[in-house]
Design a binder for these strands. Structure first.
Lengths: 457, 457
DNA sequence: GGGTATTTGTCCGTATGTATG
DNA sequence: TCATACATACGGACAAATACC
């Protein structure tokens, strides 16, 4: 006899379903006949449909089966009653939040064009944007067109929109590429030191990694030619993390070599928009005459890392392969975002925004340099400057790294190291300035510098 | 002698830079000395800084180098003059657009809650959302909380927010998982027939694929146990594409087997929200007592495929592995979208929307069934119904498939086949109704039916 | 063992309160 | 405020299986 409450908020058929289910699990055996619908309906004073509905649900889930005009019976299943519950998982570490976070790729939240973006995204959602369909997996063509125009005029990239693929970040683009040329290439040349995300992506797809040293003028071409690398990843404008810029001579030599060997160059142009002393250096892709370059760019550094939009420009000869293999129906970025960004670009807002960001960040960049000069005397060397969102710095005198790390942790300063040697000895710090306002930057750097001074031996 | 136009919109230093660059490339040799800054400035009546700036840019790009107090000289580079231009790429096929597209996963564009979404996304962008930072790579915690609540109450999934990962689509989730458990498992069990995207993802990561046949009650458990599969992908609520529902008995047996062997079950609950005859069947994950299930869900079928938001619920024992390996700073979905969706869920809009969508789609589902009955007589068999966004149909009489395909193409009808045999013989059609309005559906199905009738032999 | 009354699942139309727009 | 839509619940009609005489 079950207890059914007509006044409850849970409907009667639901209550009956639960009651029957637990009875079936606990009391009944396979093949047992359930009371007929009519019996239950009269017994509990319910409508037949109500009972019917409870039965239908039990049937749909496979607890019972019906023999028409005969009755419902318990299906053939066995519920484990053994107590063994889910193993208690090891407690997860909660990420600490820091007072001063020198993350080398943060932007200042005030610098994002909120109001404008709001207007544009409202407009995007108005314009009969079809939210019911799968769109072009390569990205909205209106956005790809806008990016093609930008790249051609501002970055010297030679391309058309059909070569562009919209991705949700740099690593997404790298994964796509790694998947695309898998089987065609096996050796992946990587700047060393270089951006670990690039290395890891190709590692995951089981390419053999060739580490090529980086010199003052970028990747070492002789070492590259001595290696087996077929696909080589480079950051020619502003090498990550050393900041080296690759001169035209090397660019041309690299292009020539890759043309000769049939290899591929991945040009990661991650922060080319942010140069503070000269105009941005035109892309390597623009010098390419033999279709050997995959160009990668992003809006993370110049507009917002939270938007999650990057892009990749494929060389033309890879397009047929791409069209064959990609999922035409699965875009990698939200359509509203794509449409909004397209407006942002084609209405000329992006150019304005870039100029503004360059000025703002140049100020902070110079401010940080100034602060180091004032507070650190001659105990340090600057390795990288003149662009991006961070300055690379290392001690030029004996230095107590261990104490330094502990102290910074104690003062809630989050640091980012450019290179970590096995012995726990650190070579350089990537000091990001983008995430701070000017006042906050002064504050943070001064705390940092006072600890630094204490650790000079 | 260059022509410099002071009235032009392009700045003078830029004009000079271009002029010098082309002269260097075309006329000069390595080591040649450039005219001094002063000489040029007097010759063209320019300020020294203007000339300096042009030189600085050429220097930054590596065309020239400076010997202090001596002059600027042409760097050691060689520009290819050989004509070999970019190979003309093979012309790409432009995707045809169809008059009647029976894509089995489209929704009706009018059904997306535009106004509400606009309001919520404006609110999201107001609420001091930090667009300057990288956010939680696992997904915004507020969204994960909201999804956890929904899954627990509506889908019978037992989970907390820390188990949830926000992805930009189903295949994204599958890729993450394939990468995560790589090395731990090697054999991937796949429903056959089944969703090819799932198979392909694990193939790309070099798992060995075991195809397990599907019977009327879902995947064949005996065949599974005879195979080597360690990780098995299933769609228990509504098998893709056959529509089979897995009874409790089989669910429990599968869970037991996977517990015994230490394997993993991937439960793809892609369209569980859309059931038209019964309430949604509770998830298999909820029956799991031994932490063996990875649950996958999506907003593509119920809200919008263009939003690009799906999610995955990891079993607890995989969390430490995940935390170690994932990129903490790279969310896979735009933060504004995540925040907006979080509001949509936690304010109760999603539940309402689901009810509405269920009703709308049920109508279209029934309408399509009715139209088939009226126009096709007894020449067909329905294989799947009662849920989702498509009905599976096949001829029950001899049928001229070749003529049918040609005719449909001629009438601009886009069809989707559930299974394509090697010989070009087709077994069943997946007829999507979600993308049509009711009127459009009547129109489309009638055209379809008239062609069908002509092809009955 | 065959006819009949009864039981049974199934299908269909309908009323009511609540929530939505 | 009002009209509509929807989930819930009700009862009758039908036909097949079953039980009984």
């Amino acid at each position: 006899m079950y207890h059914l409450d007509a006044d409850s908020t849970t409907p009667l058929h639901r209550q009956l379903y639960e009651a029957l289910k637990s009875e079936i699990i606990q009391q009944m055996k396979v093949g047992d006949k359930l009371p007929s619908i009519r019996k239950i309906s009269t017994l509990y004073n319910l409508s037949k449909t109500t009972v019917e509905r409870a039965f239908a649900q039990l049937y749909a889930e496979g607890y019972i089966y019906s023999r028409p005009k005969s009755g419902y019976f318990v299906s053939n299943f066995h519920f484990e009653v053994s107590g063994a519950k889910v193993a208690p998982s090891t407690p997860l570490p909660t990420p600490k939040s820091y007072r001063y976070d020198f993350f080398p790729a943060h932007l200042c939240k005030e610098d994002f064009p909120r109001k404008l973006w709001k207007r544009l995204q409202n407009k995007a959602l108005d314009d009969s944007l079809d939210m019911g369909s799968y769109h072009d997996g390569q990205g909205e063509s209106i956005l790809r067109e806008a990016i093609a125009v930008y790249l051609t005029t501002s970055r010297g990239v030679v391309c058309s929109s059909e070569q562009i693929i919209i991705t949700h970040g740099f690593s997404d683009a790298m994964e796509l590429l790694a998947k695309l040329v898998k089987g065609h290439y096996h050796y992946f040349g990587m700047e060393s030191p270089g951006y670990h995300v690039a290395r890891r992506t190709f590692e995951a797809f089981e390419y053999t990694i060739c580490n090529i040293p980086v010199k003052a003028d970028g990747i070492d071409l002789e070492a590259l030619q001595d290696s087996q690398a077929e696909v080589v990843y480079i950051t020619p404008s502003h090498q990550y993390p050393t900041g080296a810029s690759m001169p035209v001579a090397n660019r041309l030599a690299l292009l020539h070599y890759m043309h000769k060997t049939g290899g591929l160059i991945i040009e990661d142009d991650y922060d080319s928009e942010l140069t503070y002393t000269t105009r941005p250096i035109p892309s390597l892709q623009g010098l390419d005459q033999h279709d050997r370059v995959v160009y990668m760019g992003t809006f993370a550094k110049s507009l917002s890392p939270a938007l999650r939009v990057s892009y990749m420009v494929l060389p033309r000869h890879l397009l047929p392969l791409f069209k064959e293999s990609y999922d035409a129906y699965f875009p990698r970025v939200n359509i509203i975002t794509q449409q909004t960004l397209a407006y942002f670009l084609s209405d000329g807002h992006y150019d304005k925004h870039l100029r503004k960001m360059r000025t703002l960040n140049r100020k902070k960049h110079n401010l940080m340099l100034q602060l180091f000069k004032t507070h650190l005397g001659n105990t340090y060397t600057i390795l990288t400057q003149g662009g991006g969102l961070a300055i690379l710095i290392m001690p030029s005198v004996p230095f107590d790294w261990v104490k330094f790390k502990t102290q910074c942790e104690a003062e809630s300063i989050k640091l980012y190291f450019a290179k970590e040697r096995s012995g726990g000895e650190f070579e350089a710090l990537r000091m990001g300035f983008g995430g701070f306002s000017e006042e906050a930057l002064v504050d943070a750097v001064e705390v940092f510098c006072s600890i630094w001074q204490e650790c000079v031996l």
